[in-house]
């Protein structure tokens, strides 16, 4: 049975590859974290996501499960490094077949929506704008100034701030939109420091 981290890595990798020709571990980590946040927005617990995140020394999100998934996929030739560019990957034919087979499994059905929405965001906002917004979320911002490394712990005051933001966002949008993409991009845009500067 496929692990969720492996599935998520292939899902995100495929979408990023369609959009920007390849993907890096750093980018997979970002979009996995963003997908997890979208799941929390809809009321799921962090435990349901099945893997957790810590912060790197740079203050970016990191999951050991995602890193392990990438290593596993590279070892079994489901992904390969882009020639001459050691830190970027492409999905192979074998990886695509593996993904397509597992994409039908019920066990992953519920999480597709969050992965899909996270990846769709870069059709509506530039990739760098999405990235800068995510690292400005209250949990990542708090993590930069903290020795704690675990992200999204329930006991973390920053996680409470995040939930408060989601609650306010829910109310503001008042269930006007069927899909998750509107809350996702509104939240991203709200975090973007350049949006605030442009209004000054």
């Amino acid at each position: 049975m496929i692990s969720t981290a492996v599935y998520d890595t292939l899902f995100i990798g495929q979408r990023l590859q369609q959009k920007i020709d390849d993907f890096s571990e750093y980018e997979i980590q970002f979009f996995a974290y963003f997908s997890c946040l979208l799941s929390l927005y809809e009321g799921n617990t962090i435990d349901k996501w099945e893997y957790s995140f810590v912060k790197t020394e740079l203050g970016s999100p990191f999951s050991l499960d995602i890193k392990t998934a990438l290593s596993t996929l590279e070892a079994n030739n489901s992904i390969q490094q882009v020639s001459g560019e050691g830190t970027y990957f492409n999905i192979t034919g074998k990886g695509t077949e593996f993904f397509n087979f597992n994409n039908k499994m019920n066990i992953v059905a519920w999480r597709k929506k969050y992965l899909e929405t996270a990846c769709k965001s870069i059709s509506l906002l530039p990739l760098g704008v999405v990235k800068e917004a995510i690292i400005s979320d209250p949990v990542m911002t708090s993590a930069k100034n903290s020795i704690k490394t675990n992200l999204l712990e329930e006991s973390n005051p920053a996680t409470k701030v995040l939930y408060n933001q989601f609650e306010a966002l829910h109310t503001a949008l008042a269930d006007q939109y069927q899909d998750l993409i509107v809350p996702a991009v509104v939240w991203l845009e709200s975090l973007n420091p350049e949006r605030v500067k442009s209004e000054l």
């Binding site: 306010a168 109310t171 503001a172 949008l173 939240w187």
Partner: peptide, 14 residues
């Protein structure tokens, strides 16, 4: 906060 997000949503093309 609610008004803030309403404002962001109002200004977003999506």
């Amino acid at each position: 906060d609610i008004d803030f997000y309403k404002g962001v949503a109002r200004d977003l093309y999506v």
